[in-house]
Design a protein around this nucleic acid. Sequence first.
DNA 1: ACCTGAACACCGTTCAAGT
DNA 2: ACCTGAACACCGTTCAAGT
Lengths: 240, 240
Amino acid sequence: MPKPSRTPSRREDALSRDRIIDAAIHLLDAGGEHALTFRALAQTLGTGAGAIYWHIADKSDLLTAACDAVVVRTLDECAREASPQATIRAVALGLFDAMDAHAWVGSALMRAAGRLPTMRLVERIGQQVRALGVADDAQWATVSALLHYIVGVGGQNAANARHAQAHGLVRGDYLDSVARAWEQLPAQEWPFVTSVASQFAAHDDRADFLAGIDLLLAGLESGSRHTTSTRRPKAARADA
Amino acid sequence: MPKPSRTPSRREDALSRDRIIDAAIHLLDAGGEHALTFRALAQTLGTGAGAIYWHIADKSDLLTAACDAVVVRTLDECAREASPQATIRAVALGLFDAMDAHAWVGSALMRAAGRLPTMRLVERIGQQVRALGVADDAQWATVSALLHYIVGVGGQNAANARHAQAHGLVRGDYLDSVARAWEQLPAQEWPFVTSVASQFAAHDDRADFLAGIDLLLAGLESGSRHTTSTRRPKAARADA
DNA sequence: ACCTGAACACCGTTCAAGT
DNA sequence: ACCTGAACACCGTTCAAGT
């Protein structure tokens, strides 16, 4: 993009795909998904609303591109660890934190199924799953399970944070109030929910998230040695 | 619109929450999430747009209620099997099929984190996880992993079906075309994606889905006997 | 090639007014 | 108590017209 040069271009920085994506990320971070508006974007960038369409196909393209930018940064920052397990954990935690910082990324990722950002994650996690020695025909289901856990749990953790903030509460206080509501449900009808709620005391979301990852990895270790009778030697779904 | 009836009530059936939810489900099934409009709903029901607000808080309330109706029906139809594992599998498959029939349910479920439909699923699955003998402090992470896998993978399978249909293709042909696109990526940059794509031949989505469930259940069996060092005796997230 | 901004075809939600 | 429907404050997207 043309840096500030003497030649009096129309604007200090010309409009560009990258500048639009950056501005979109800022709007999304500040006000959530419904704050991303072509009008708001145009105002931020000092252009007309329609100008953006020269660089971006439509809103879903914009959201996917913003999501991809965050994913790329996150994966770049994830050091490759010694073992495949450790690398998976590092990627998972990196995404967890990225979603916490950019609460909109979780749901954006869910809607970007076969698209670039998801493919990057499938690739990175898939390489580790392969390195783990998981049988060929189980690799896709394994990557799916890991990815959906990461995006699902991480995305909802981020949603919690936003929700707490919207209620003007610290995250812990908010979670406690939800837990207390669950505790007071009729125990005959809700035996599990009431009992699990009573475990909500001091909680560490990241540690809990990691516990789930470990659970999945434990399943891998016990499952990778042989193929169960219900698992058949073909089959894979064409997205993540 | 007032049917020709002797008793001149305003309408044959009075407007009610249930009637609205039913109409919403039909609109959602027929045209997806963006087809659910207060105007379309009002026209279907033969009322004014604003009348709906007497029975329903807002659009998100409506979507959650529609989602809950589907979840209730699905859980009712799920027979309780002999073993906890079999029951989990039955619930998972029931939801898989429900999402396939109502493609909008997946994303609705994702946005309904602490709300009624999700709580029902947490309760049903949680009971089985407990029956499986999973340690108290690991139950929440376990239910989370299962639920996110089910909703995530099932939801995307449904999205695939819709996507294929939108492209005027049979589901299998659509998936094959995606797989072929993945295969043609540069293999140095995408070693896993290209290799996994080459496994996409004849695939059975439900069988693959079940393979993932089995993977998770295998993790449970190996993990429920002891607590690993990274899993700590507290912690739980206050939603699903 | 790139940008402008009015215009189009929608939205969810509210609310005075009706019965 | 329940319903009406016009009105309000928005949307994404397009497109003739400009530079």
